[in-house]
Amino acid sequence: MRGVASGAAPLPAWLAEPEPAYEPPRDRDGFLRRNALSLASMLTVFRTPACPEGPIDRMLARVSPVLRLMGTIVCVGCVSAARNMAFVWVALAATLVVLASRPARRILSVARPALVVALLAALVNVPAVFLGSPSAPVRVLMKSFVTVTIVLGLSNTVQTERLFGALASLHVPSHVVLVCDLAIRDLALVGQVATSLNEALACRSIGHAADKSLGTAGVLGMTFVKASELARRQSDAMACRGFDGTFSVERERVITPAGIAYLVALACAVICFVYLEGAVA
């Protein structure tokens, strides 16, 4: 650039004169780039903060995440352990009601993976039909859908900081909580970087790439480099702000009116499970 600014060297001919119309050589690199882009953009899901957006989720948000975690584990356990379908149907009805109370985007973010998992599980169980258990695929499908929806519902509606804080309340070491918290943040940043790099690659892919993997490999490689750089800079920033290895996690009150109501509802669910398992043995 010294050349142009100082006037010593003009623009080269290929830049100073107009070019004939450009017809790009044919190429088929769309598949690789689209898949690299979609892989990278999957990481951007971490950018979408978990947020209670439906009326039921907003009520549940008043409950301590510790209780929510425990409740989720208990509900998933009951649904999985149910030997007859009565309790599973009750759980399905409750799950669908909570799902229906959410905005469309939250419904999709939970229902889509839950359906995929459920259908895969049902598919795996199809041989059971020929082995004398014709209802096995349906049972597995229902149970998978309900349990995955419950778990995803928790992760989609409770902020990660609160969830990790709940882990600390369960005596998980605080440095584990810190690592998890930082990892989520960094994954979101890395996803952003990868998406931007893929866009830059798309903008500069103007013809035929003899080595199709070069650009995509470069993007993935740079993403890794950026991730390492982010981690190093974050460590330096934390040291500059006095981090000495100890990390205290803010703990929420567990026993609140909302928490008590939640425990009562959970107890009712367990009683329902025990009753239906016994009544329909």
Binding site: Y22, E23, P24, R26, D27, G30, V193, S196, L197, E199, A200, L201, A202, C203, R204, S205, I206, G207, L214, G215, G218, V219, G221, M222, K226
Partner: peptide
């Protein structure tokens, strides 16, 4: 793809953050 490539050849975008533009 042909349209996109012609557009990107004629319109060269330099990103605000060079870190997200360089991958070689």
């Amino acid at each position: 793809q042909a349209f996109a490539k012609r557009l990107h050849k004629r319109v060269g975008l330099v990103f605000q953050d060079p870190d997200t533009q360089l991958f070689c």
